[in-house]
């Protein structure tokens, strides 16, 4: 585990950059985490982030790519545009969740 300075707060992240303590997540922190990934968050991004946080709250696990497209109704194409190069992992990181474990 390592610590990281973001928007003036010290947060705990694992080796891959995922937040370790979900309690440290705030929407402002998400903006900053997204910026690190080169993403400026829009309403469409937030729709995905909020859905993923809700889903993870229910199941205890980060949703996979296909669960996100099925659950939000956002197409695969659109999702890869919103979060290029690995949407499920990027969303999980920005949403303060763990790394998605499923294959699909």
């Amino acid at each position: 585990m390592v610590t990281k300075e973001l928007i003036g707060i010290t947060v705990n992240v694992n080796e891959e950059g995922y937040l370790v303590d979900p309690g440290q997540w705030t929407p402002e922190l998400a903006q900053e985490l997204a910026r690190e990934e080169g993403i400026e968050l829009t309403d469409a991004h937030w729709q995905v982030i909020n859905w993923c946080r809700e889903k993870a709250g229910e199941t205890g696990a980060s949703p996979t790519l296909r669960q996100i497209t099925k659950g939000t109704g956002i197409s695969t194409k659109e999702l890869f545009k919103l979060f290029p190069k690995g949407p499920a992992k990027k969303v999980a990181k920005i949403a303060g969740l763990g790394k998605p474990q499923g294959c699909v």
Binding site: G86, K89, C103
Partner: peptide
């Protein structure tokens, strides 16, 4: 292939 795309 899907996993690879998911990893960028």
């Amino acid at each position: 292939g899907w996993a690879a795309l998911g990893n960028g």
